[in-house]
Design a protein around this nucleic acid. Structure first.
Lengths: 192, 192
DNA sequence: ATCGTACTTGTACATCCGTACAAGAAAAGA
DNA sequence: TCTTTTCTTGTACGGATGTACAAGTACGAT
């Protein structure tokens, strides 16, 4: 009576990727802490057993999901690499980058979900560090190593604020702040 | 045979606070998603039923834990309010603030745990927004509303980087970045 | 063709979960 | 004092969870 589903065409590599992708989506929506084998399997449209076959433990599955997120982010970042290098005005280009990035709030949540998870679990740090290193690597060529990290810290903070409040980005203000941060020397308040 | 524990002296208010405090600790260590009634009860040294008596649902318990975290943070912030207003050099004072804040990594994780949770659950946003508004409110008096938010965004980003990598703060760099950000006008690269 | 390996699918199981609730003891009111 | 309310404690229950595993099928090697 209980008809068994006929087996699908086999493609282990695709299945592994589909599970990682599904894991990524579940993490983005439910958070790392509420990600389960069953939710991932359901999202991927695969039986429960598939998850444990490809990823022995839940931690492995979550790590795969986060790694998958890193990979897709890197692809986006490459496009931005081109755009930023061609940009006539870097602060404005970075502002629009942030603006476009904030379009997909789910993605933003996923990023910070990764960061918090990495803070708790050292195993995930390489993934989070690779994520954080993406943008600085591009900005570095224009502003140098140190300034690049400062700039990206500012961007991370601005993105965080927008994520928490759910508000839009104040683009002109960010551009202005970036201009200050990328200026060669600081000014003391009041001196002309 | 199963001896029932004699009832303790009653102090509902203290119990509520103890549960909220325990919830805060569990959230800091396990994350919002892995916080359970049982873990909180065990941490507080109270029976399971106490959690559901004071906080009908798990969401209530978690919200109470986060609110408790906000309250304790506000107390710390008041001390910083005094120190910052008395500080001769604001950028340096803010740098040492960050440095001291990074001393307790558990607290840092808790903060960002709150932010991610608030991004996902709008119910928690008031708590997260109150948290984020704490420092700007102090810095505002010196640098004005807009600059204060930029400064705090930078600090948030720097703290985030330190949290993820587990590394120490590069204090001189942060001070320098703060000086740039608090300068009255931006400089174009190369012009003296 | 057949064989063995690698993969698929469904199910089982012990454990933990959120929440409900019964039984009792303290405090408060009469 | 007795009664009512409020709080304490332990337990119960249906359901979800991580993981193990048996049964079966595709597919490459031979």
């Amino acid at each position: 009576m209980t008809a068994r589903r006929p087996q699908r065409a086999r493609d282990p590599e695709a299945r592994r990727a589909a599970l990682a992708s599904a894991a990524m989506e579940v993490i983005a929506e439910c958070g790392v802490g509420r990600t389960t084998h069953r939710a991932v399997a359901a999202r991927a449209g695969l039986p429960l057993g598939a998850t444990t076959y490809y990823f022995p433990t839940l931690d492995d599955l979550i790590a795969a999901g986060l790694r998958h997120a890193l990979d897709t982010m890197r692809a986006d970042m490459q496009a931005w690499d081109v755009r930023l290098r061609a940009a006539p005005d870097m602060p404005e280009a970075l502002t629009t980058l942030v603006q476009e990035y904030l379009t997909d709030r789910r993605q933003v949540r996923l990023e910070y979900e990764l960061f918090v998870a990495a803070a708790r679990d050292t195993t995930l740090r390489p993934i989070a560090e690779a994520w954080m290193a993406g943008l600085p690597a591009i900005v570095e060529d224009t502003y140098g190593h140190e300034a690049a990290h400062d700039i990206c810290a500012l961007l991370d903070g601005v993105i965080l604020q927008a994520m928490v409040t759910g508000s839009e980005l104040d683009a002109p203000r960010l551009t202005a702040a970036l201009r200050k941060l990328t200026s060669s020397r600081p000014f003391v308040r009041g001196t002309p």
